[in-house]
Design a protein around this nucleic acid. Structure first.
Lengths: 159, 159
DNA sequence: CACCGTTATGAAATAACATAACGCGTCGTC
DNA sequence: GACGACGCGTTATGTTATTTCATAACGGTG
């Protein structure tokens, strides 16, 4: 998260208490709607992502998994992440090898992030990708998903 | 490359013979212009990328490095890749952990790829990113670089 | 309830990807 | 010819992710 910079990353403060409960509850509901199960490991990984102030690496999650400090086994976390991504509850940021909870309302949207090289904050946003993909259509590609990661400097970080 | 699909990936056939020589020569020239050195390991890694029909993983390069089958040491290849990326001779595709030679004319362009989930082909293209980044500017981000990776199905692959 | 197919978890090991750290040689400069 | 910058080779290690096999939980059907 903010290790590389003295500034708060501030963009998406981690959830706690009621807000966290609400977010987890919303996830439960959406699972119920779609016959999917928010099982304990999946719920735990989502909770860790929601609590965090910034992107978490898989092995951060593995280390933090146990309530009493015992790490999870890697596949436990990787499987949960796969599930959470499939349902749109989380996104992987390829250029960081890290994960964030989804912060947007819309379902099935494409993952796009503004990543601050200074403070490490990763802000999800909704880009207008249509013009960018005109060339793809022209080339005959059927685009199924897009990831866009813009690196730069966030408003809170200095020149 | 095409392992997952019986179709030729055809998009960027690897270079051979004269075409390969020309491409390497062009890289030499551009290095000479900028006081950079296309040393033997750098040249060899670029050659392997240019010869390939599709994206190569770092350990593919490591395995193929020696003319007589001896592998390179990992840092040799990673250092060469870092150099080639810095000069714009190669790009890393994050979602594949793989590398391709740059196929575009323009210097300093942003890396954008259409990746076929079926045959593994990765076609570089030049997207119109301005509309997508309007939201970034509005949020106060100073964007320095962008990677865009679109997954889907290429024209040569079946339904 | 007994069964079975499906889905998910637990655990061990290992594979795949990437970098740190050190020392040596070469080259350009003063 | 001393120096510094750069690049290379090498060893070792760190980080990220998957394979494999075994077990457990759930949901439907007779």
């Amino acid at each position: 998260m903010g290790e590389a910079c003295h500034h708060a990353d501030g963009v998406h403060p981690g959830l706690k208490g009621q807000a966290l409960k609400r977010a987890l509850g919303a996830a439960e509901s959406r699972c119920a709607d779609t016959q999917e199960r928010l099982t304990p490991p999946r719920r735990r990984v989502l909770e860790l992502l929601l609590e965090s102030d910034g992107p978490l690496k898989a092995y951060d999650l593995i280390a933090a998994y146990g309530e009493a400090g015992e790490p999870a086994k890697p596949p436990t976390v990787y499987r949960a992440l796969e599930f959470l991504e499939r349902l749109g509850f989380a996104h992987r940021i390829e250029s960081l090898n890290a994960y964030v909870p989804c912060r947007l309302e819309a379902d099935g949207h494409m993952a796009a992030f503004l990543i601050c090289d200074c403070c490490g904050a990763a802000q999800e946003f909704e880009p207008d990708l249509a013009p960018a993909l005109v060339a793809a259509k022209a080339a005959g590609y059927a685009v199924r998903s897009v990831t866009l990661e813009a690196r730069g400097r966030c408003p809170a970080c200095p020149e």
